[in-house]
């Protein structure tokens, strides 16, 4: 009984942690620009696929991970420079559509370069599962949780302790004022895209040994990450983490206790309920209309 519950909980937390990392990426860019970056899932895919193909070429795992993360970071910068920045004064909606276009483009390139097959990545450490009170835990889950926690703490420090982090926050609060005090807002935006690409790619790499990876893995995980961000309240870091974890846990519990057929239905009803009673999400900021 306990074992069963724990098993569902482990499953939920592992996948939830991934959702949370993706949701954080959404949050970051949303904060800096009010744009919802639908190419977030693609950063995830780039991380996983680049690592797999680099290791296949004989690059040691650690170096491959670093290179993949750098590649994703560059891609984040390129996305902002080449797709978002030229659209300058465009509406937020237009920018969101641009990110959708960019995601299709990136996916297309990935499909040509890496093909359409699914790829396997080895577990970081042992592939032997760990037993806890009769439930089993994939050792990779610990990596997902650990790295997820490190990333969250790192982000918090980045935003509260560093000047650049504070500049991003300032830009999100009031772009005009931020520019007046000498913050280069375009630069800040670029940084936000880069950091969120780094986040996404790290999530893609740690989760790849569990989910496999392929050129289109970003669609589903990206969407789930967006849902998690919406539950938590777009723009809230805590919300992204809570939203991701609760989405994962609810999914796993529903699959285990109710029926796997209703798993997604339960998760999506939860979103409806949350948004119905708290339209800004669990931790969303109150909106003040500027007149």
């Amino acid at each position: 009984m306990l074992a069963e519950f724990l098993q569902y909980l482990f499953t939920g937390i592992t996948i939830g942690a991934t959702y949370a990392l993706i949701a954080l990426g959404f949050t970051l860019i949303y904060n800096a620009s009010h744009v919802i970056n639908f190419a977030q899932g693609e950063f995830l895919m780039i991380g996983g696929m680049a690592t797999v193909s680099l290791t296949a070429m004989g690059v040691p795992m650690i170096l491959a991970v670093v290179l993949a993360v750098i590649l994703a970071g560059l891609l984040g910068i390129a996305l902002q420079r080449l797709a978002i920045a030229p659209a300058k004064q465009a509406d937020v909606v237009t920018l969101i559509i641009i990110t959708i276009g960019a995601s299709i483009f990136i996916r297309g390139i990935a499909q040509v370069v890496w093909g359409k097959e699914y790829h396997v990545m080895q577990n970081f450490s042992t592939s032997e599962p760990i037993e806890v009170f009769g439930a089993v835990l994939n050792s990779q889950s610990l990596w997902v949780l650990g790295i997820g926690a490190v990333m969250v703490v790192g982000l918090v420090l980045f935003f509260t302790k560093t000047l650049i982090g504070k500049a991003i926050l300032a830009t999100s609060m009031n772009k005009e004022a931020a520019r007046l005090v000498g913050i280069r807002t375009q630069m800040v935006l670029m940084l936000a895209f880069m950091v969120s690409a780094l986040l996404g790619s790290v999530a893609g790499i740690v989760v790849a040994p569990i989910t496999f990876t392929s050129y289109d893995i970003g669609i589903i995980l990206g969407l789930k990450g967006f849902v998690a961000a919406a539950i938590g309240g777009l723009g809230s870091g805590v919300g992204a983490v809570v939203g991701g974890l609760s989405l994962g846990i609810v999914e796993a519990m529903a699959a285990g206790y109710i029926s796997s057929d209703y798993k997604d239905a339960v998760a999506f009803s939860m979103i409806l309920l949350v948004l119905f009673f708290m339209p800004r999400g669990l931790f969303g900021a109150k909106v003040v209309e500027r007149v």
Partner: peptide
């Protein structure tokens, strides 16, 4: 991406 719950069932 994870079917552990169903298999536990």
């Amino acid at each position: 991406t994870d079917m552990t719950a169903q298999l536990t069932n």
